[in-house]
Design a protein around this nucleic acid. Structure first.
Lengths: 220, 220
DNA sequence: TAGATTGTTAATCGATTAACAATC
DNA sequence: TAGATTGTTAATCGATTAACAATC
């Protein structure tokens, strides 16, 4: 697989959204769609859609538009969804269990291969049909199974040292739910942070901004 | 409270991160910090930090830098964290329960006032010390308690119609976890989407991009 | 005062939008 | 062919970075 020549992260982050909308169109039986129609549906400009897609290839046809199913498949391929990256999840608390059972890893390019926790209270219990293993089994698992990705559903304080340990064990990518910005010095490690707390505080700002705008009109 | 004159969303989304880092500095007992030092810590430029903060006021002092505690308090105020926006959560599945028990709403500007679900299996059970109520009690609750914010932890298919209903009941803001982009025609409604599925697919892309870059160097 | 660092303006960079020739 | 719509280049817009006078 050739590395796409530096497609910007802004573009990449829009791909899953295209994928979702195309999936819905496909379910509805829509065969073709123009960038103009898709733009209207998604609240974007047609220009942006064409620019985005042309980072990866010319998937459309002049005078016709895009074939929904073909484009859906192309984006799936671009995102790597037909692969099964071997993945472990650390932290089987409420959030970890929700993610393990809810996220449909296998339709998004991953295979959840094991779940670990340090609490004796949950070790051995089943989460998504999989027994939670103790942390002392982590090293052996990584050395025999070679997972590439780790989902971190652990408290902030535990995150950094655990991440370092996991990198030493061959983990190359993190899906990080701890309220902590993983400082990954290593250049060849991927980190995707999901900062739900930050998202919630952003919402707080936006609500107050909305209410303030109503209470008293601002003087521009 | 005056509406801040159109601070860009890019800036607003960085505020919670500033808040987190300042909180850590505060815990460590750091009294003052310069934009240069904070930039190094956070992986930003000093220029950006000064630009961001000056959207809201001049919180620093020439020759000295910023007082950590004062700046922490200012950002808390800007984000509205000392308020308690009345909030309901819909959907007490794994994810809903995780969010209800995990998110520390009260330290982020919200008060979780009620939890609803339609499944008889969970109605009446306690989540975070709060009994889950049936959906038939939703209308009455909204009419007497006037919650402003709804957290949606429900399947995609249920999201849009429920959102419309909630808007009719006075809800002005959504924290949306359904894998669905709420189409809010209403201009005066705030939506904060947390698309975990999109985040996971983005991670898939980045991992393959990383691996491809190693396997065969690209021809620029 | 001299040194440090802000607040703010100007310059640069990157992302989005517009325009249009190519082409199905 | 004529009409439609892409792929792609050029123009615009917004966000980030650099520079520096103000000032603590």
């Amino acid at each position: 697989m050739a590395k796409n020549q530096n497609v910007s992260l802004s573009v990449v982050r829009r791909l899953p959204r295209y994928y979702r909308f195309l999936g819905e169109l496909l379910q509805k039986g829509t065969e073709r769609i123009s960038s103009r129609e898709l733009a209207e549906l998604m609240g974007l400009t047609a220009s942006q859609i064409r620019q985005d897609l042309n980072c990866f290839g010319g998937f459309g046809q002049q005078g016709y538009g895009y074939n929904v199913e073909a484009l859906f498949q192309e984006i799936s391929r671009i995102l790597g969804l037909e692969h099964r990256l071997k993945t472990i999840l650390i932290g089987a608390g409420n959030l970890g269990r929700a993610i393990a059972t809810h996220m449909e890893f296998e339709t998004r390019g991953f295979e959840l291969a094991a779940i670990f926790d340090h609490s004796p209270a949950v070790i051995g219990s089943l989460v998504g049909g999989m027994p939670v293993q103790g942390m002392e089994q982590l090293e052996n698992f990584c050395k025999t199974e070679h997972p590439l990705v780790a989902v971190l559903c652990i408290p902030k304080d535990a995150a950094q040292s655990l991440a370092d340990q996991l990198i030493a064990l061959g983990i190359r990518a993190f899906w990080n739910f701890s309220h902590y910005d993983l400082a990954v010095a290593h250049k060849d490690i991927v980190v995707e942070n999901v900062h739900m707390g930050d998202s919630l505080m952003t919402l707080s700002y936006c609500v107050h901004d909305l209410l303030a705008g109503e209470g008293q009109e601002q003087t521009v």
